[in-house]
């Protein structure tokens, strides 16, 4: 069973500057993805563009503000806003992150790390279940890019995600770039992580570029979403597809957004690998 209704094709994170280009002709796209929070205004161009794109493309609604790992209760007003968006645009998928981003009244605008303990697991499971109940749909939970770990973490991240999926029935969003970034920063092998990842639960894959900055003797990888997808990420992605067959795959490029042909080329590259994977499964 696939964990989302997204077509097993390539998609892009939609940027308003690409609106006319995307509509100007056939594109190598099966879907588009937007950050839910950018469409929480009452009206105006964002909604006009999304409604138009929705006529031609399946939609993945990707949240960045729900703070599912937060120690405090989920924001009921934010859940209502998400439900209104789901009702209005009928997305094929809703996804969020294994992270926290709010504390008290403050929204911290980043995806912050969690200790992987039984207590965190119970909290995340309760929050994911609450989201799914509220939205009346299955959600996908994404593995985070991390820069730090916790002394008290006892559960491997792959096992943690598998357990959330098992207890809530949610699917998973596998961000291959996040795996590469976290592996470099925390000193584990990305292939070992992917070997342990519960791929059967994956409903969508994210690919993106990262930035490498020197940090003392080591190199720090930053999940910057401002460059083409890295070669190592492409290679690992192809290996994942060989195991899963075609899975909806998004190119995320949020900063220093390139001209449409550049992003289109990245999507086409993912599309070619997806077709290969389809043939591999058929053979």
């Amino acid at each position: 069973m696939r964990a989302s209704l997204l077509p097993p094709a390539a998609g892009v994170g939609f940027k308003p500057r690409h609106f006319e280009h995307i509509l100007s002709g056939p594109q190598p796209l099966g879907f588009i993805e937007v950050h839910a929070e950018n469409y929480m205004g009452q009206g105006g161009p964002p909604h006009a563009q999304l409604a138009r794109l929705r006529q031609d493309y399946a939609l993945s609604l990707h949240g960045v503000g729900l703070s599912i790992g937060g120690a405090q209760p989920l924001d009921a007003a934010h859940l209502r806003r998400l439900r209104a968006l789901c009702d209005r645009y009928a997305p094929a998928s809703f996804s969020e992150h294994l992270a926290w981003s709010s504390h008290g009244p403050a929204f911290l605008n980043d995806l912050l790390p969690l200790p992987y303990t039984e207590a965190t697991l119970a909290r995340v499971v309760a929050h994911v279940a609450e989201v799914q109940d509220c939205l009346g749909r299955q959600m996908l939970l994404e593995n985070p890019a991390t820069y730090l770990g916790f002394a008290e973490s006892r559960i491997p991240e792959t096992e943690f995600l598998a357990e959330v999926a098992r207890r809530t029935g949610c699917g998973l969003l596998l961000d291959v770039n996040n795996v590469v970034v976290a592996a470099a920063n925390q000193g584990f092998a990305p292939r070992a992580y992917l070997a342990a990842f519960p791929l059967a639960m994956v409903g969508e894959i994210h690919l993106a570029g990262h930035a490498a900055v020197p940090a003392g003797a080591a190199t720090l990888l930053i999940d910057a979403h401002g460059t083409p997808v890295d070669d190592q990420v492409w290679a690992l992605y192809a290996e994942v597809l060989a195991r899963t067959g075609p899975v909806a795959t998004l190119i995320e490029w949020d900063n220093d957004v390139p001209a449409w042909p550049v992003l289109r080329r990245e999507a086409a590259r993912a599309g070619a690998l997806l077709r290969q994977a389809a043939q591999g499964v058929a053979a």
């Binding site: 980043d110 912050l112 790390p113 200790p115 820069y147 730090l148 770990g149 916790f150 002394a151 008290e152 973490s153 920063n185 925390q186 000193g187 940090a215 003392g216 003797a217 080591a218 720090l220 930053i222």
Partner: peptide, 18 residues
Amino acid sequence: TGLRAAPGADLARRFAVY
């Protein structure tokens, strides 16, 4: 307190990314 950086990594530098 309670955070852990990879061996050889500077914890403060890692926290600074966030």
